[in-house]
């Protein structure tokens, strides 16, 4: 569900960048980037069995 919302938010941000005010597009971009980081951290819980 969160991925559908992220794709939708990006489509809206693209339209804002193309037709709307610049600040709105950049604000939306910032929100989406933070949401992507949060989604990544949520899905990065599997332990990596690596040793260096």
């Amino acid at each position: 569900m969160e991925f559908t919302a992220l794709f939708l938010a990006i489509a809206i941000a693209m339209l804002a960048a193309w037709r709307g005010p610049r600040q709105v597009a950049i604000g939306l971009f910032a929100l989406i980037l933070v949401a992507c980081v949060a989604t990544f951290l949520h899905h990065a819980t599997d332990r990596l069995t690596l040793s260096f």
């Binding site: 990006i10 941000a13 193309w18 610049r22 597009a25 971009f29 980037l33």
Partner: peptide, 9 residues
């Protein structure tokens, strides 16, 4: 897809 925002702007 998010990479595209910069070029569009």
């Amino acid at each position: 897809a998010l990479l595209a925002i910069g070029p569009i702007l």
